[in-house]
Write a protein that binds this DNA or RNA. Sequence first.
DNA 1: ACTGGCACTCGCTACAGTCGAGTGCCAGAG
DNA 2: CTCTGGCACTCGACTGTAGCGAGTGCCAGT
Lengths: 340, 340
Amino acid sequence: MGLDDRKLAVLRAIVEDYVATQEPVGSKALVERHQLGVSPATVRNDMAVLEEEGFIRQPHTSAGRVPTDRGYRLFVDRLSRVKPLSPAERRAIERFLAGAVDLDDVVHRTVRLLAQLTRQVAVVQYPSLARSRVRHLELVPISTTRLMLVMIADTGRVEQRLVEMPAPILADDVLDLRRLANEKLVGVRLSETPPLVQSLIEECTPELRPAMTTLSTVLLETLVERHEERIALAGTANLARGGLLDFHGSLRPILEALEEEVVLLKLIGEVEQSTLRVRIGDENEIDNLRAASVVSTGYGPGATIVGGMGVLGPTRMDYPGTIATVRAVARYVGELLAQN
Amino acid sequence: MGLDDRKLAVLRAIVEDYVATQEPVGSKALVERHQLGVSPATVRNDMAVLEEEGFIRQPHTSAGRVPTDRGYRLFVDRLSRVKPLSPAERRAIERFLAGAVDLDDVVHRTVRLLAQLTRQVAVVQYPSLARSRVRHLELVPISTTRLMLVMIADTGRVEQRLVEMPAPILADDVLDLRRLANEKLVGVRLSETPPLVQSLIEECTPELRPAMTTLSTVLLETLVERHEERIALAGTANLARGGLLDFHGSLRPILEALEEEVVLLKLIGEVEQSTLRVRIGDENEIDNLRAASVVSTGYGPGATIVGGMGVLGPTRMDYPGTIATVRAVARYVGELLAQN
DNA sequence: ACTGGCACTCGCTACAGTCGAGTGCCAGAG
DNA sequence: CTCTGGCACTCGACTGTAGCGAGTGCCAGT
């Protein structure tokens, strides 16, 4: 396919105009707004080619052109220059995140910040437990047969869980359990704890065995199985901005998808390296989100990735701006985490 | 105003039909569907009176009638018989909540359950800290200058917070701090802790004083000031069901309101007794929710109320059903909490 | 290879006309 | 005094027609 420079320029112009105005853009308007140096007729010919190649389409005969998912893809891959953040934005990010006092707080602020800056739906995954190490385990007696298990991970995450003991347990035994568990598990990656928890049962004294067994099941549940991943969400109201023209009509599927933790994790949790990822319309694996685009990236202290964050909006969105913002916020959060 | 029994029956019929069909209801359709025992003409006269009194209105001349907020109000107060839950529903509630393992879990399940049963947006407030008592305070050393403060309330809530110490602190001192704090604060209502925390500083040994001072500020923040109330939300996708006819057009204001914790608290958190409360359309103090109705109630173990829960939907909603569901769920959750 | 011109398409808007659900009112019956 | 049947009226929803104009595709000319 012969896509010379001018045709690409035309595509870029179409995307930019359409994103800005939300209206199909015609050849005449194009040459007026951009300095293409050629006549509308020429642009029309280029448009015909672009349409043949599947980068743009006409909503109706005799309307202007609109980019297709493929068109946006090409735009993102080859045509959009990264739009550097303004100093004001950088400062806003820094100031907004600086006040955070806690991991919870960091995540909360981050997700609100992302939603606000991009004016879209923001999603932030808490640092993944699978990628964390155990920093400390605490057992707090609640009653004679009840303990509260508190697990603190090196990423700052804290999980707690009630443990129902099979029989009353002595304070001293609780201390023993705690000591044993900590000796064995502190510093270990959570994903690698299961065999160790098993050995914990085997190696402990017979008197402690029943208690340790129940504790272990809860431990395993807390560490590995149960709602292992947490997610924060903000900016859903932004979905209703575009007058429902985006998302062709109904927000329902989108809202439904956003309620499913699993779906959200799929959206932003699958990042292995810190590469930023853009999924446009059809490229999304989740059917409900075929009308949306997702910009996501991993984040973490230094080069390691401990979780993902991202933004969801209409396919017709300001990709360069969104990409820049997501990238910047992720970097700041990473630095913040590194300080701990 | 003379509202005899038949006029009330007419109003009830109008509300029921409109809720079911979502279309303005005319006199003829009414007599056909309900056994009113009179002719359409008579009904029309009654309707005229009802309209004069402000209980129903016509969207346009020559369309059927639609209930006004006032009409719904009268319906809820005097016309709706409580619709008992089906045994199947009761069982569903029981089964769904029985598996809960944790306060977090209870709240999560409750909110999803409510959303599912009522097919509306559900909101559940975590047991309010202000109404809880301190059950235990735990201090976990993270590094020489960092502690993790964990507060467990008698309602099952657990709050944690990082404490940044002004100077390195010894393990023994941590134990002392913990002991002192627990001695002073365990069993106290959170709302009454501030003076005690103050005295904690005054009474402790000079060596511990700096550490205790920082700890105290964090304690106060955790116990009283900071995001004291937590809230769970589910079912936002249900907002987009009614084809946007409800909420006259835009979901935006509703979604915006739902993102504000403060607003949500106002919605469901102001319950003092366990009385169920229904706010219809205009009766809502929050402007963004003038097009919605809220059914809310308090819940808690036994007669004490520890938090609120509720449901938000279009004014045109099945009040009897929703009221019954909310009430039932709140009661079950209360029983569940009482077991702890 | 680009441009200007021209005929053509087709969605949008306005307007007129018809249909019918629903109403308000009135006179008469119970 | 209350209910009923009848009747004229209103007005929104729908249909069909016509004109407008943005935008296109194509072609001949430079």
